[in-house]
């Protein structure tokens, strides 16, 4: 049997607009994943602490505050310091194409903008985790 995919969903920043994070949490659960919902007001350090202890395959962040260019790199760095480079970092928000490219160059996975499809996101996560596990030799 294939190992369960575990996803941490967190919402960094001070605002409380969690509609998107919650909808995605529901949809990944329905896609058969174990979703650890960390909720609001999460700092990069809190996110990485949770990712480590929960041994997740994926960290998915919802960022609407415009702080994506600081938060994604910070989480990447902390994951790296924790020896968790194999964790897929993805997420969504209002992020321009150039910024998406730049973040992906830094090491994030695919990022999703407004109007993205839920099933597409779930499919992407499934494929990407499968590929990473194969490379890891699981």
């Amino acid at each position: 049997m294939e190992e369960k995919i575990r996803v941490l969903i967190a919402k960094p920043g001070l605002d409380g607009h969690d509609r998107g994070a919650r909808v995605v949490a529901n949809s990944l659960r329905d896609a058969g994943m174990e979703v650890i919902y960390a909720g609001l007001q999460q700092t990069p350090q809190m996110i990485v602490n949770a990712a480590i202890q929960e041994d997740v395959d994926v960290v998915a962040l919802s960022i609407l505050s415009g702080a994506h260019m600081t938060i994604f790199p910070r989480v990447l760095q902390l994951l790296h310091e924790a020896g968790a480079d194999d964790v897929l970092l993805t997420g969504g928000g209002i992020i321009g194409p150039e910024e998406m490219e730049e973040l992906q160059r830094m090491g994030t996975g695919r990022l999703f903008g407004p109007g993205a499809s839920l099933s597409e996101a779930a499919e992407y996560i499934r494929e990407e985790v499968r590929a990473r596990r194969a490379r890891r030799g699981d």
Partner: peptide, 30 residues
């Protein structure tokens, strides 16, 4: 909220430009 999003995914509800009447080569300028 989740039900509405599922209805959009299933194309039971429409958002013009997002679920239908999409412009293929649209580059959204952010």
């Amino acid at each position: 909220a989740y039900r509405y999003q599922q209805e959009l995914e299933a194309r039971r509800k429409t958002m013009v430009g997002v679920t239908d009447f999409i412009e293929a080569e649209e580059e959204v300028e952010i």
